[in-house]
Amino acid sequence: MTESTGGIDMDEDSSGTVKKFAFINRKAPYGTVYALESLEVVLISAAFDQDVSLMFIDDGVYQIKKGQGTKGIGMKNFSPTYRALEGYDIEKLYVEKESLEERGLTEADLLVDVEVLSRADMAALMEEQDVILSF
């Protein structure tokens, strides 16, 4: 999977260097497994002390919508786990403004503190990353 990870350098020389990692989340929760998989990788990545950002665009913004309750569909509600990210020192959460608007959502609908960015700023932020993980 070198393509999607942008080529993580695991050489000994690179140990100790901090890289900018971005997780780009584009899928709604529950309908597919992408959102949950991403969250698990994010939690594991926290152990490597890298500069991690989470970006929520397109349907990905639905992952952090308030008020999820999954008893009826018999799946685990993993939305509370986004609130644990702060404790893992993952505090850079970015949400695309246009994606919220296209879905009738505002920042107040989200269950964690985020920074809302325009599509153009989001694109620029992607360019700054060393490694991008796509979900």
Partner: peptide, 13 residues
């Protein structure tokens, strides 16, 4: 609260 078991570093903190 969070629906996960914390990593040891996170638990300690």
């Amino acid at each position: 609260d969070y629906q996960i078991a914390p990593a040891v570093r996170v638990l300690t903190k």
